[in-house]
Nucleic acid binder design. Structure first.
Lengths: 235, 235
DNA sequence: GCAAAAGTGTTTTATCTACACCCATGT
DNA sequence: ACATGGGTGTAGATAAAACACTTTTGC
């Protein structure tokens, strides 16, 4: 079959906004760009979409290149396509955001890319329109996490309720009453209490919990009472 | 500056999922495709992104081509990029959805495209991956309209509360108690009651309302009580 | 024994839900 | 006068918010 005539083709890239949580604050994984333009400057991890791969595949490939991780939470965020966003030539970029358990993250691999984690409030100057990508990703996470339990993706398999609360407080840059917080979290039936404690941040120790995966998948989509049937909703 | 070497370029398209509401049910505006492949079959309105235009500009251009309308509510939905979604050659498509006031829609223009409105439940077979686009757009509207007052974009400037309720019932395919509905809607302070009535659907007539634009813009972003500061949230 | 974080309940307040009758008018 | 859709109020249930003290244990 013939191709479409008289149409301009362009490069399509994927950029990944990679979030992690170290127990204290929300962080971004950035690399020092290895080629021109802007070589050596801090950048999101990205790459061009290859001829035989889908966008999701490209995003997963790029994420794995940098972190060594498979099966990470990854979601398409938005496509940025201003004609001159890359000075070299026209490149549209499909931005994805990823939520990573930093305890699984392999430092060695990312060493090659001169990668580093930056607290969201201390992100260095980024290239092109990447600041807008990061800002949008942050808003999207806040938006989505208010309705869906995505933030668990940032935690290790075993976590404590105070850790979880720190995470929410960090994402929303606020403080939450711990009594109300634990009540609400436990009311979701998403957590299973374990018998051992994390004693790293207190003498008394805090009980570990893990996700109830059945309930997790079942409730992931549910988000409001306004809506008659909470299944037809998620994007 | 030199271009990026050894990278494959591809076509980038924009497809518009155009919703309208006629007072009865939610509808989609479709065209009969004018070129191969799939010439003559029902399709979303779309087009290739031109060298000097942004994605938003392309979407607005395409929407105006078909409807004659400017300033329509238009939002980027998702980018579809499976390698073989178009059999002719690789084309990634950035899908946008639009909410149109059908009373402003100009029939003449769209006549050239053999366009027509289809109730969502009676959409004909669509080409390529467009069924997935439509489904995602429908979910996105339900999702977003549960939190933001976007559905007003589908109504004319003057509308009645029963019309508004029909719209919500149509979008969510449900029925709502009219006492609770009008209470909730009026509680938002988004509506200004007018003195004239729409007598087209009852003898008594229903009061017209219009949007309070100040409150509309102010509350557009607000959506939950969970969140401390409802400003940093929207994507 | 004391500092530091973990854990837990109750009351108040706001919001949501269910539900039924009268009104205005064109025919 | 009657059929049709428009408009309104209240009581009960549910969910959210405010708020303080006791427990554990390493030092």
């Amino acid at each position: 079959m013939q191709k479409y005539f008289h149409q301009t083709r362009l490069l399509l890239a994927v950029d990944c906004i990679i979030f992690g949580f170290d127990g204290e604050e929300l962080k971004l994984l950035l690399i020092q760009r290895g080629f021109e333009p802007e070589k050596g400057n801090w950048s999101l991890m990205g790459g061009f979409v290859q001829p035989e791969e889908s966008l999701d595949q490209a995003a997963n490939r790029i994420l794995k290149q940098l972190t060594g991780l498979d099966g990470v939470y990854l979601e398409q965020l938005y496509t940025f396509g201003e004609p001159n966003r890359d000075p070299k030539e026209r490149v549209a970029s499909v931005a994805y955001f990823a939520l990573v358990d930093v305890s699984k993250y392999e430092k060695q691999i990312s060493h090659d890319y001169h990668a580093d984690w930056f607290p969201l409030k201390k992100v260095p100057e980024l290239i092109f329109d990447q600041p807008a990508m990061v800002e949008m990703a942050q808003k999207r996470i806040r938006y989505k996490a208010a309705l869906h339990p995505i933030l668990f993706e940032l935690l290790p398999e075993k976590f404590t309720i105070p850790q979880l609360q720190n995470l929410y407080e960090s994402v929303y840059d606020t403080t939450i009453d711990k009594r109300n917080f634990s009540k609400r979290v436990l009311a979701t039936k998403l957590l299973i209490k374990l018998n051992d404690k994390d004693k790293s941040s207190s003498k008394r120790g805090a009980y570990y919990y893990k996700l109830n995966m059945q309930n997790y998948y079942a409730k992931f989509q549910a988000f409001m009472n306004f809506i008659p049937n909470p299944d037809n909703l998620m994007a």
